[in-house]
């Protein structure tokens, strides 16, 4: 999937500039966005997902400009799957309803088709027993697996994941990362914001290092981790490694 940004700027109401003119152009399949907290990673992902508008600049996905018009954006969002750090599931719906309701109401599936698709995905993600539970009755790892199932249910062009494992206990992290890795093998394109450096390095083709609202480094993951170019990236990696076993 080809992604392009030109002069992307985001400034919130309080006048702080969160993204400082980002330019980017590449054909990507799996991309990890990494960087220190508050660097603007979530903001960038929200803009790519059409959830918020940039203050200035343009985005193109597969050569098509992402519009600023709400109706156009709503159509655009239909083709994108989004997984949030936490709390992204509808609390009043069961796991199955979380998947079927958007399929029926947004994508025009019949009830039977939607239920079949939900059952298929829940089965694949080891959640068959959990289908009729509401999010509050699921573990964090199960919630995130349902969220991923919902995000890919309508076969989106691209999947966006914003720190899908950050709110999880360590033992649940692997089960979620395994699923995302599986999606890669099925050829689903995704962009993931993550602090799991092992995953960024080994499971994602490309890595972008976002710091202070700027795209400081970008490239093949194998190269980037072996030869960090900027001081900031070296410092960032050094901090992460400090307490490693």
């Amino acid at each position: 999937m080809k992604i392009e940004f030109y002069g992307l700027v985001k400034q919130f109401d309080d006048d702080r500039v969160i993204l400082k003119s980002i330019d980017f152009c590449d054909d990507i399949h799996t991309l990890a966005i990494i960087g220190p907290s508050g660097g603007g990673k979530s903001t960038l992902l929200r803009i790519i997902g059409g959830l918020i508008l940039p203050t200035a600049g343009e985005i193109y996905v597969d050569g098509e400009k992402v519009s600023a018009d709400e109706n156009e954006l709503q159509k655009y969002r239909k083709n994108i799957g989004y997984v949030f750090q936490q709390g992204g599931l509808f609390r009043h719906m069961t796991a199955i309803e979380n998947i079927t309701v958007p399929l029926i109401k947004v994508h025009g599936y019949s009830k039977e088709q939607a239920e079949e698709r939900a059952g298929e995905l829940l089965g694949r993600f080891g959640l068959l027993e959990e289908g009729h539970k509401r999010p509050a009755a699921l573990s964090g790892g199960q919630q995130q697996r349902v969220a991923i199932a919902r995000a890919i249910a309508a076969k989106p062009k691209m999947l966006l994941l914003d720190e899908p494992t950050s709110a999880l206990d360590p033992e649940y992290t692997t089960e979620v990362l395994d699923i995302i890795h599986e999606l890669k093998q099925q050829g689903i394109d995704f962009i993931i914001v993550t602090h799991e450096m092992g995953f960024a390095r080994h499971a994602c083709d490309k890595v972008a290092f976002l710091c202070d609202g700027q795209l400081m480094e970008y490239g093949e993951s194998s190269r980037l981790f072996n030869q960090p170019e900027t001081e900031q990236f070296r410092t960032f990696l050094g901090k992460l490694l400090e307490w490693n076993v």
Binding site: G49, R77, G88, L89
Partner: peptide
């Protein structure tokens, strides 16, 4: 807010968000 953002992300229109997320909750 997370519920409203999720509603946007799954592609609900404003009307659908009201009908399927805000009203039931």
């Amino acid at each position: 807010d997370s519920q409203l953002e999720a509603a946007k992300a799954v592609g609900f229109t404003k009307m659908q968000t009201t009908r399927y997320v805000i009203l039931p909750q």
